[in-house]
């Protein structure tokens, strides 16, 4: 790996005071950015500079900064989580950029994800979809059976686990030209559909989650496959197909 160096970059960032304000793209110059820093550290550096200039810092979502919480977002140079694959924005590093680059940073764009401020969007639509059916009802009266006591074929368990790897970041919605949430919902439906514990409520789950998804104003899937490529957790389109099968089964019941 080549040694870290410092680069000078130009940033074009969406600034929006609050949910109701009209936003616009603003330009900032940022010098001496180490290529060893992460993308979010670069934004921290920008905010330091803005605070020193007595300007409002850029609001952006972040939490664990190790790619598992699903909190960070950002549409960077036309791609969700920026120009690399299998990562969230916090795992993106400045070595992906060159000296003199102009970097566009925008919030997730979706009717269902309204901008709260600057680059922060409200992703509670995903929570409401989960609440509509993304769970297994368990009796917690004290005689709960250990999940591992039910034998599950390894292949099914692996597929369910791969679907459950979804961190709900919303990159699929952001990158989809239709603003569709079907990869997220497909993953959430699949992780239960594949397991015996999930079969009990399978019919209502898929119907309710899809209904909620539609009510939130997400678009329709046209199978472009962009979501699968931009997903930081590599959630496969097979999950959307499985949701479509589950929905057909549930609708015919």
């Amino acid at each position: 790996m080549s040694a870290a160096k410092n680069i000078n970059i130009t940033l074009k960032i969406w600034r929006q005071k609050n949910a109701n304000a009209k936003g616009s793209m603003e330009t900032y110059k940022l010098d001496n950015v180490s290529t060893a820093s992460s993308f979010l550290e670069m934004l921290d550096q920008l905010n330091e500079q803005l605070i020193n200039e007595k300007k409002e810092p850029v609001a952006f979502d972040h939490d664990c900064r190790e790619g598992i919480c699903g909190m960070c977002s950002l549409y960077i140079n036309g791609r969700a989580h920026g120009p690399d694959s299998g990562i969230t924005t916090c795992q993106l590093h400045m070595r992906m950029f060159k000296d003199g680059d102009t970097i566009y940073i925008e919030p997730w764009r979706s009717k269902a994800f309204p901008v709260v401020k600057d680059l922060v969007v409200d992703r509670s639509a995903f929570d409401r979809i989960q609440q509509a059916g993304g769970f297994v009802s368990v009796n917690t009266s004290g005689n709960t059976i250990d999940a591992n006591s039910i034998p599950i074929p390894k292949d099914d368990a692996d597929k369910a686990f791969m679907a459950a790897a979804c961190i709900g970041c919303g990159a699929c919605v952001a990158t989809c030209k239709n603003g569709s949430a079907m990869l997220f919902v497909g993953a959430k439906v699949s992780q239960y559909a594949l397991l015996p514990q999930g079969k009990v409520e399978a019919t209502q789950r898929v119907l309710n989650m899809v209904r909620q998804m539609d009510e939130e104003g997400f678009g329709n899937c046209t199978n472009t496959g962009a979501c699968e490529i931009e997903c930081p957790k590599g959630i496969s389109l097979e999950n959307i197909a499985r949701m479509n099968r589950e929905y057909l089964k549930a609708s015919l019941k």
Binding site: G78, R79, G179, G219
Partner: peptide, 26 residues
């Protein structure tokens, strides 16, 4: 419906990075 799902469009896009020309223009 799909157009309505994204009322504000992106300033910068790079669709060729993740989808085919045909799939985007059906």
């Amino acid at each position: 419906q799909n157009k309505k799902a994204r009322p504000v469009s992106y300033a910068k896009t790079n669709p060729a990075a993740n989808s085919s020309l045909a799939s985007r223009n059906m």
